[in-house]
Amino acid sequence: MDIAFLADVFRRLLSGLPLTLKLAGTSVALGLLIALALATTLQGGRPLFVWLIRGFVAAFRGTPLLAQIFLIYYGLGQFRPFLQDIGLWSFFREPFWCAILALTLNTSAYGTEIIRGGLQSVPLGQIEAARACGMSPWLVYRRITLPIALRQALPSYGNEIILMIKGTSLTSIVTLTEVTGIAEQIISQTYRAIEVFACASAIYLALNFIVTRLIGWLERRLSPHLRTAPNLMPSSSPRGASA
């Protein structure tokens, strides 16, 4: 083991971390907003919208992210004259924005499904109670439905965030030098693929560990009413979890 080499590799790989975080952060935040809008529209039940959204979700969940990135970057590049005419070329010219678009659309498709599940799990009694109190539909949505739905969706959404962080590694293919892109550069200079990829893996693993912990903390914060009282039931036994 060449400690000095590994330390140098780590240092250089970490210089790609800001871009990795920017890609993951932007697409997760934008994707959440789109997913909320789409899932809420689905609840509304207008057939045209429902079919459109279902088609969008099926298309983006049924195809590999790599294919989506290639299609948006190289595929749309074929239509430069048209994109120039409608003034969108300056957006599609940049690999960064193409990557953000692909990641955002991908995560919003998965997010729509997750939030739809959350919205469906809201007990009807709670909504009826809020209506009986005289809340307007918007107020019911904002104060009752949405908070409960988001709390329900949090564990699944945590997984989705991790999938997105992992997904950013694919953007190295469209010339972005995030962590994986830098790893490939180092390998091209040193030809030591195994050590370099192992270092990169460690960085992603640490990142995802932190995210898992943050989500877990948030989950506990948001559900004090669901916590078991201390020392009444040992929660570590698998039988305790069978319900």
């Binding site: 190289y74 590049g77 074929q78 430069r80 070329w89 010219r93 690999p95």
Partner: peptide, 11 residues
């Protein structure tokens, strides 16, 4: 091949 595509696309 990829940089050829991007030259044609004007990137």
């Amino acid at each position: 091949e990829q940089h050829d595509l991007d030259l044609a696309a004007g990137r």
